[in-house]
């Protein structure tokens, strides 16, 4: 089951650049939450702070607290444990090029020392079914490289890989921006199904996409969270002028 995320006074920097300023919000469990805003507004930095990927950059710094379920990810656990509980799907599909489809999906478990072949088989099958890729690849699991799939398939493979370690939250950083419309709609269908089991946070530049998949939407601008409300409210009756300007296409 997914868990809720409670963000309090989150600030983040890249060097001297204050990329996130005093972010406070509650992301509800088992819903999709979309984050929108112009390029450079801090939304990607924000999701990277939710699984401590932000700090893999040596010049990055974070303050504030993020609670995922019961744990404060910055004080109660190591980054490695956190990332196991919070899966991430990146903008560009990034399967491991030397690995087969099967090995890609199994990689999260295997690289953490898990070896039971029977259980791995089950996890790989279940994850690929969840990612709506099973029917397309089941005959080539160990024969084909993950890199040989099409872009849309690769992205679903990356989703399957993230699901295989059984996370509670799935972060998606513009997961469909490098994909064609057909693959994009597949990913969106998938988000709908995955909500039942995971809490989903999706960064997107595509406002229709946010409106289609998310219950709640946050609008970021210049490192600040301008508005966070139900998606319906944000797109029909935004409370802030800047949100309205952005969603009506007056800037950004």
């Amino acid at each position: 089951m997914g868990v809720g995320i409670e963000v309090r006074n989150l600030n983040a920097w890249y060097g001297a650049n204050h990329t996130l300023q005093d972010i406070n919000l509650h992301i509800p469990a088992n819903q999709a939450t979309a984050l929108i805003g112009p390029s450079g507004c801090g939304k990607s930095t924000f999701v990277r702070c939710l699984n401590r990927m932000h700090e893999t950059n040596p010049i990055a710094k974070v303050t504030g607290s993020v609670r995922i379920g019961e744990i404060d990810i910055y004080s109660d656990a190591s980054p490695v444990e956190i990332r196991r509980r919070i899966g991430m799907v990146f903008q560009r599909p990034n399967p491991f090029p030397t690995m087969s489809i099967y090995d890609n999906v199994a990689s999260g478990l295997r690289l953490n020392g898990f070896r039971n072949r029977r259980v791995l088989d089950e996890v790989v099958e279940r994850s690929l079914i969840h990612a709506a890729l099973w029917d397309e690849v089941k005959g080539d699991l160990k024969k084909k490289s993950g890199a040989s799939l099409s872009g849309g398939q690769q992205q679903r493979l990356c989703i399957a890989r993230a699901l295989a370690v059984d996370p509670e939250v799935l972060l998606m950083d513009e997961p469909a921006s490098a994909l064609d419309p057909v693959s994009t709609s597949k990913i969106e269908d998938l988000i709908f199904q995955l909500k039942a089991q995971y809490t989903i946070v999706i960064v997107t530049h595509n406002m229709q996409q946010a409106a289609r998949v998310a219950e709640r939407t946050g609008f970021f601008l210049n490192g600040k969270l301008v508005e966070f409300d139900s998606t319906h409210k944000i797109f029909t009756n935004p409370g802030d002028k800047r949100t309205e300007d952005y969603i009506t296409g007056r800037f950004g």
Partner: peptide, 23 residues
């Protein structure tokens, strides 16, 4: 992106270097 994929799965850095980057 490949390194990030591994770290994002909760793989320790040393393991990611040996099993993903080096491979």
């Amino acid at each position: 992106a490949i390194r990030e994929a591994a770290l994002g799965l909760g793989v320790p850095n040393w393991r990611s270097v040996l099993s993903i980057t080096l491979r």
